[in-house]
Every structure is written in structure tokens, then in C-alpha cells.
Computed example of a mutant assay.
Amino acid sequence: MSGSASSIDDTIAFIGGGNMARSLIGGMVGRGADPARIHVAEPVEALREALVRDFGVEAHAGAGDAVAGAGTWVFAVKPQVMRTVCEGLAGHARGVHPLAVSIAAGITSAQLSAWLGGSAAVVRSMPNTPALLGAGVTGLYANAAVDAAGRARAEALLSAAGATVWIADEALMDAVTAVSGSGPAYAFLLAEAMEDAARAQGLPADAARTLVLQTLLGAARMLTESGEAPAELRRRVTSPGGTTQAAIEAFEAGGLRRLVADAVAAATVRGRELSAAND
């Protein structure tokens, strides 16, 4: 069906109350959303209590109780249990036609729709862990059953965690996962390697940590705030015959670009394999 807010209640039900759900809920409440309109299904009692205490939302042990009266269902559970969770809610979806938003990697919109009984309005999304700080980015894909109101509803939800990017071809969502979903780990690996290299050059561990973290933070801010392409910013820092040029030449000689391309390709392939494994 349409997934429009005009025919269904605007209550949002989160199925799963883990870190990513918490980040979205926190962002929504921080932007003025009514906590009473946010329901969460979470089997772990301590997590339920924390959600109620921190955000004032309604928390339930069972998913069926959480989705009652909700027009948007956000599936924030592990991919391995998604089918079981969805099939358990298929009966609740009949006649309600909720907008189903998935934040699980490797689960296609067709799979989610089928598990919910067929013909479901599904938005597949891939946020990343900086969403926990409100600094994330989320790739979004809507199936044909989602109308303009449903797309706006999904975007408003996910924008609580950071920037959003709509993807027209669902097949590209595996590449989104490989670039931004997994991407923070690539930056963390670079930071780890830079710290190791700094200590190898004799810098104390605390100095190495501060130098690396602030360098990466500053570089990220220049990338996002200057409006310049990465290549141009790199060119400005690289004086001919200088220290930066020596380092860049070592990176290029070591095949950094090819290595990054291979890593993203490997993650993309793994995403496709995960989708196939859930059929």
C-alpha cells in the first residue's frame, strides 16, 4: 500500500531497542518528537527501562504490543532474526499497511515485503555508526509501494541521525553498505596505523593519539565545510619536493587506491552474499 501518513496513525514503532534505535529515538526526541508517539519492542528488560528513563518512550517486551496503532515500523534487529520477527508480525500488518523501515544490512525490500505478507511499503536504509553522535549518513531505497508521503516520513526519521541519500536502484545498496556502512571502520584502521607509525618514529603514545585524532578531525571538517574536492585539498597541502609529497608518493607506490577499491568491492560482494543467504 502507500505508506502514507494520511490513513494511518503517526506513532512510530521500533522493533529492537539497541544502539542504532537509541540514536534515532534520541535524535527524534531532541528535535521535538512526542515520546508518547514512539513505541519500542525490546526483550531485554534493562534496555527497556533505560529507553523509558532516558527518552520517555513507551517500551514493550513484545513486538505485537509495540506495533499496535503504529503507522511506521522500524526494524532494528539483527539480519539473522529479521525473517522470524517479520513473519511474527505479518498478521498485525494485514489491514494496517504500515510503512516498514529496515536498518538491517543485507535484507532486500522484496524479502521484507514477502515476510510481512506481501505488498508492503518498504524503505530499506543503511545508516552508519556515527549516527550515534548525530553525525551519520544513511542511504535510503523505497520500493514501488512507498508514496511521496512515505518517503518524506522515512527521511524525517533517518535524518535525525545525520545526512540522507536516496538511491534509485536497490542493487546499489550493497555498495552503500560497503562505502558508508562499513566506512567508519576504514577511518579507524587508518587512525590505528597512523598511531602505530607515530610511535615507531619515537613519539609518546599520548602525543601520537592526540596528533592523529585531531588531524583526522580537522581534515574531516575541511572536507565537509570547505566545499572543495578531496583532490584539491590534498594538492594544497602537498608542496613540491616536501614532506607531504614524500608520504603521498609512498602511499601511491604501495597501491593505496587499488587497495581501497578492492576493499570496497569485497564488502559489496559480501553484502550480496548476505542477501542471498536470507532467501
Rank of each mutant, 00 (worst) to 15 (best):
A142C: 09
A149E: 15
S102V: 09
N128T: 10
L140A: 03
G95N: 00
I103D: 12
A100R: 05
A114D: 13
V123E: 14
L112P: 02
P98A: 01
A131F: 12
G106W: 04
L99D: 02
G139H: 00
T138N: 09
T108V: 02
I107L: 14
L112S: 06
A120P: 09
A148L: 11
H97G: 03
T129I: 12
A120F: 13
W115C: 08
S113G: 13
A120C: 14
R151W: 00
D147C: 15
A104P: 04
A135L: 15
T108I: 01
V123D: 11
T129H: 08
S102L: 14
P130E: 12
V96N: 02
A100D: 00
A131P: 13
R124A: 14
G150M: 09
A104I: 05
A114I: 00
G106S: 06
G134E: 03
T138W: 10
D147R: 12
A121S: 13
G134W: 04
V122C: 03
G134N: 07
L140Q: 03
A93R: 05
L112V: 07
V101K: 01
S125L: 10
H97L: 04
G117Y: 10
I103Y: 13
A131I: 11
S119T: 08
Q111F: 10
V101I: 15
A121F: 13
P130D: 09
N143C: 00
S119I: 07
D147Y: 10
G117S: 11
A110K: 07
A145Q: 14
A149G: 13
T129W: 06
G117E: 09
A145G: 07
V101Y: 02
A120L: 13
A131H: 12
H97W: 01
A114K: 06
A100N: 05
A114N: 02
R151F: 04
H97I: 04
R124E: 09
V96M: 05
G136T: 09
A149N: 07
N143S: 00
Q111P: 06
R94T: 14
L116V: 00
T138V: 08
G150R: 05
R124T: 11
A100Q: 05
I107Q: 14
A114Q: 04
M126P: 10
L140V: 05
V137C: 11
T108H: 03
S113N: 08
G95V: 03
G150H: 01
P127E: 13
N143K: 00
A105P: 07
L132T: 15
A105C: 03
G106C: 03
L99M: 03
D147Q: 14
V122F: 07
V101A: 05
R151P: 00
S125T: 15
A110V: 09
V146M: 12
Q111R: 12
S125K: 06
V146I: 07
S109E: 02
R94H: 04
V146Y: 05
A135R: 15
P130S: 11
A121H: 11
A148E: 15
Q111K: 11
T138Q: 06
L116N: 02
S102E: 10
T129V: 12
A145E: 15
S113Y: 08
A135P: 06
G134R: 00
A149V: 08
P98Q: 00
T108P: 00
S109T: 15
